[in-house]
Design a protein around this nucleic acid. Structure first.
Length: 541
DNA sequence: GCCGTTTTCGGCCCGACTGTTTTCAGTCG
């Protein structure tokens, strides 16, 4: 207890409880503060010690006081008071699809329902019939939603969401007349986890697109209108599709990419200058301004185009206004890929195939990583016998700090440390030859000390000038954007690996994660030529 | 509850869809 995540959770709970009470604007204010706290790169206690809590977007006097109470006492009296007023089951009711604060409150006040279980009983007893606003269809929907598995709403890891989205885009393209089709939402912003998918289409025949979308194998239609359709995949993931005219594409893409806070901020800017932005266009009174591209939308606000990965209302708008938006990492900045795994049974044929993939072929150097001595020796002989290609082949060795196997001196070009438990003694990075970095560093959701362990490794990397890795699986197998940003801002170096988890580099999820952390090419080692000589990479501080 | 180089008070993004409505409320994103 006492960490940023716990504080954010407390404020979200306050927001939910205030929703039940019918408060109009306070819930959003608490949620905004919670989102800001989640994206902080340091502990609240450190910000409080500097007396800078009010600098956090969405934190004013009242929430500052509550943060201090939370840091001091581990709880917030206001939250305790709300908890005493409202049965915990009421918040659970609002989690059910189709039930919002108004409905949950009515169940509570009109029917004495205090949670999902008593709601089921009330429906079975026919007590919803005759309640104004509740016809047979609505009652059936509530009953259905109560029976549905709650796990349906779980957020998916970025990589899983990206793959599903890619499949759906291909499915639609293959069977409907699509002009433009793009992913929006948190997937486009490369959030570490994705709650649902948003897909945007322009087409002259929207009916055909909606039909094709609904025909996705295993999908069930949640709702369908003339321009909007929502489905749930066989796996339970919700996917929204919107069809807009091509002249509205920029406005729609900007709008559906979010984030919510970013949209509120941009729309406020628009209002300040007498404009109105909706998902169809920027309007000045009755006059429609150019809205076909995102750049046009931002231009109407006198802003440069803002990369989607940093659209979180965490300073990007101010930076855009000041002309100080960071130059973010691009896939084309990466000169090397250093984490192609060697799987059991792999041989030269497969390695050559990986090298021949269109993305890898553009690189200057590629590193294959072995974790068994037999693999290492097979790799070595392949590299020796191989006729020299354009791409330099490097051989790496991956092991845990406690591993007993050790490659012969001079046989490896670099070493990858796979974290296992707490950071090792500093000597660990001195074993063997060549540069060392930490790969596969993430948080095991089962590990309650995961966040602490991550932060220990980040500190260790900084202290010993050891690079950390960003991968397409932030959180579970690589730094998340916040950790990467914190590390880079403190002077740490990064390895950005798209291929750690397979050869498909095309989605750019590792680069996206780095961009989300406001990271440019500067701290990224594999955006530099491979180091020459026998020195460290980067040099020790 | 937060916020402000037009504001320290009066705003707070805004439209699609559904179900129950004779004109709109609630939910959702």
């Amino acid at each position: 207890m006492g960490g940023n995540a716990d504080a954010a959770r407390a404020f979200r709970e306050i927001a939910d409880l205030l929703d039940v009470l019918g408060e109009k604007f306070k819930p959003e204010a608490y949620r905004r503060a919670a989102r800001s706290i989640d994206s902080l790169t340091e502990e609240l206690s450190a910000v409080a010690a500097r007396d800078q809590l009010r600098e956090i977007p969405g934190v004013g006097q009242a929430i500052e006081e509550k943060i201090r109470e939370f840091l001091r006492e581990g709880t917030i009296p206001y939250l305790e008071k709300l908890r005493r007023e409202i049965p915990p089951g009421i918040v659970a009711l609002m989690r059910i699809s189709g039930i919002g604060p108004k409905t949950a409150r009515r169940f509570w006040t009109d029917l004495g329902v205090d949670g999902p279980a008593t709601l089921v009983a009330a429906i079975d007893a026919g007590r919803l019939e005759g309640l104004s606003g509740f016809g047979p269809k609505k009652i059936a929907k509530v009953r259905e939603a109560l029976a549905a598995a709650p796990s349906d709403s779980r957020r998916r890891p970025l990589r899983e969401a990206a793959r599903v989205a890619q499949e759906i885009v291909l499915h639609i393209r293959a069977g409907a007349p699509v002009d433009q089709i793009e992913v929006a939402g948190s997937l486009r912003r490369r959030r570490e986890t994705v709650g649902d998918l948003d897909i945007l289409v322009t087409s002259a025949e929207s009916e055909k697109v909606l039909d094709r979308f609904a025909a996705l194998p295993g999908a069930t239609i949640v709702l369908r209108g003339p321009t909007k359709e929502t489905i749930r995949t066989a796996d339970g993931l919700q996917v929204d599709l919107r069809v807009v005219p091509s002249e509205s594409f920029g406005a729609a893409w900007q709008y559906f990419t979010g984030s919510k806070d970013h949209n509120i901020a941009t729309r406020s800017l628009a209002r300040d200058r007498g404009l109105k932005i909706n998902e169809y266009a920027v309007m000045r009174g009755e006059e429609r301004l150019p809205s076909a591209t995102e750049a046009e939308i931002y231009r109407s606000l006198d802003l440069p185009w803002i990369p989607p990965e940093i659209r979180e209302a965490q300073g990007e708008i101010e930076a855009a206004q000041a002309g100080t938006l960071p130059r973010l990492l691009e896939s084309s900045d990466l000169l090397g890929e250093l984490h192609l795994h060697v799987a059991p049974g792999d041989g030269p044929e497969r390695w050559e195939a990986q090298l021949a993939s269109p993305v890898t072929a553009k690189l200057q150097y590629v590193g294959f990583v072995a974790s068994e001595l037999a693999q290492l020796s097979a790799l070595r002989s392949w590299v020796r016998e191989r006729t020299v290609g354009r791409v330099a082949i490097l051989v790496g060795w991956e092991s845990t700090p406690s591993s007993v196997d050790s490659p012969p001196a001079g046989e490896v070009d670099f070493r990858v440390l796979r974290p296992e438990g707490p950071p090792p003694k500093p000597e660990a990075r001195r074993v063997g030859t060549g540069p060392v970095w930490v790969g596969h560093l993430g948080i095991d959701p089962e590990d309650s000390n995961g966040a602490q362990r991550l932060s220990d490794w980040v500190a260790w990397g900084l202290r010993h000038s050891v690079a950390l890795e960003v991968t397409p699986a932030p959180f579970s197998e690589g730094l998340d954007a916040v950790a990467a940003r914190k590390f880079a801002e403190a002077g740490g170096h990064l390895i950005v690996s798209e291929a750690t988890l397979g050869p498909d580099r095309s989605l750019g999820l590792a680069v996206g994660t780095a961009r989300r952390g406001w990271i440019g090419p500067g701290p990224v080692l594999n955006a530099r030529p491979w180091r020459t000589g026998s020195g460290d990479w980067p040099p020790p501080k």
